[in-house]
Design a protein around this nucleic acid. Sequence first.
DNA 1: CGAGATCTTGATCTGACTCAAGAGTCGTGG
DNA 2: CCACGACTCTTGAGTCAGATCAAGATCTCG
Lengths: 224, 224
Amino acid sequence: MNAIVQRPQAFAHPAIVNAMVLERGLPVLPVAGDVGLSQPISNYKAGEEIYAQGEKADTLYQVAFGCVRVYRLLADGRRQISAFHLAGDVFGFENDETHHFFAEAVSSAGLRSLRKPSTSDAATLMFPFTLRSLVRAQEHLLVLGRQTALERIAAFLLDLAERQGGHDEFEMPMPRNDIADYLGLTIETVSRSFSELKRQGLIQLNGLRQVELLCPQDLKDMCC
Amino acid sequence: MNAIVQRPQAFAHPAIVNAMVLERGLPVLPVAGDVGLSQPISNYKAGEEIYAQGEKADTLYQVAFGCVRVYRLLADGRRQISAFHLAGDVFGFENDETHHFFAEAVSSAGLRSLRKPSTSDAATLMFPFTLRSLVRAQEHLLVLGRQTALERIAAFLLDLAERQGGHDEFEMPMPRNDIADYLGLTIETVSRSFSELKRQGLIQLNGLRQVELLCPQDLKDMCC
DNA sequence: CGAGATCTTGATCTGACTCAAGAGTCGTGG
DNA sequence: CCACGACTCTTGAGTCAGATCAAGATCTCG
């Protein structure tokens, strides 16, 4: 009984299978033991800090399960979440030796970490992940710069759905608060937008964090 | 004679020296002849298309002189410029084999191009440039998500100044129109914000595109 | 010098923000 | 098992920053 519980822990653990499925086209990094991301998973509680702005940046992280937010703050407390990272995502790279962002667990999360390798190794290893992050950030610029509140929420839901396997029902791991700071809105506007999408029959909420897309095509038409 | 003309072409051309100065910490790519970005400069007229969304992405570009805008469009014509590229900047990388953005010369521009090398070469070569683009995009997310019109303009001016050598007087190569679509504003709001900064004595316009920062520190305080 | 493009300014409108209150949810302990 | 309290979320009313609409002014370049 114990053994049956243990074996899955290494490879068939749902979170890891999840990661491999989610990062379609990109293997879990690395293709196992060579460079260190096959290290044990460290666990973070909801809200726990992973790194802070100003800290030395010498470690990369890959999400094994759970969700991480990466954000910046303005002096007066305004916050912009630049990305949510889900199972399979890699984060923590910086231009220089210092973190310019904060990273925290949203929900309880498991992370594999890798001491940053030499520049040339890092390049080969990290390039596809950096590129992926870049594309995501650039797409998000369009959302923040030019879309309405309703369009932002629609795009957000579709993105989350796709990244969690493409099912029409899925969980949002983050509170409204975080969604607002990711989409450049207030929490009230986020809430009103969800209500509006419900009213239009495009989504249904089965519990506060459990979303069902009733009409994904209409959502796509709405935001693209 | 021929030889003498040729050698400087590789290293002493003003545009290239410029590039080397601007990209502090990152050499002109590559450190000459090895991989092809020492190729001749192709010239683009103001407004000329470099590539379009949907085209095959098999070439990378480095700006030798001038300015390039990279942008996306929504179906109804809304436009978001995700980046302006100045001398020394490298752009054109994509996640897959297809361009998801448009690129056009803002002012007349000169570009060196490089057929995209094999994945492993590309990684080593492009990693620092990708990382730099990622950091820029992430910083821009904060601007678009959480800053006011005046703060956006201030941040924009400081960024342009820094990227053009850090002088207090410099040229904006792009029209108000493009600034608006980069900062997620309308052209009228951009214009009003410039007027407001002038009224506050923080900047002076010597010609429509020639800016002078009268009080860079106050601008910094305004936006950070 | 003239025509089109680009930029500025004014007046009005509106989508999202702010402020305020109430409802729902969840965990804890009695 | 329920009651309490803290948190999270929703909804309403009023406000405001920036958008839209509409003239003009200025610049550029043939």
